[in-house]
Design a protein around this nucleic acid. Sequence first.
DNA 1: CCCTGATTCGC
DNA 2: GCGAATCAGG
Length: 201
Amino acid sequence: MAMEWTEETIARLRDLWQQGLSTAEIGRQLSVTKNAVVGKAHRLGLKPRPSPIRRAAKTASAPAATTAASPAAEPAVESTPTTPAAEAAAPAVTPAAPPALQKAPAKAQTAPTPAPQPKPAAPAAAETAPAPRATRATKAALRPVSEPRRRSSQSCCWPLGDPGTPGFHFCGATPLPGKPYCAEHAQLAYVKLRDRRDNVA
DNA sequence: CCCTGATTCGC
DNA sequence: GCGAATCAGG
């Protein structure tokens, strides 16, 4: 099987793509590979995003044709490694622990062993459940997240709404001492990674 | 090494 | 049409 690419998925692809998410990021959120994302994006015709490379000018055929080099200045949409939109999704708040984004990848979910002690990781709620993202997000999370310097944020960083969308925002309530989330969301956040039926419908 | 996106080509 | 494989730059 290839992938259904229903109107829905295509719509999401378009949306995420437009939001400036990286192909890999989109792929994760759509549970497909980045290749699939790129390929589809091409076929869909959308794709004016900054490419890190410029594949050699087409073999043969007008090699010295209108090769205007054209270093077409890219919009400031470029940040650095990691997804630009992802940062945009979780800005300003300087959360002690990066809130997982919405939608859980059906795969690539290297089930983070249920730690004996609650650790900020798996917000698993019903709808708009910000699910834990393994892969490199995990790596990042495993790093000095402890960060002795920055204490917890002054506001709950539980994500509400879809990152990137206008309505997206963080809870903002007063978080528990030492926790990035408020009392209510902490309960959701520190679930033991059990039934987190992905909503990735 | 990691990441990124782009293209090719068998399916 | 699809996307893994491959390529190529950072």
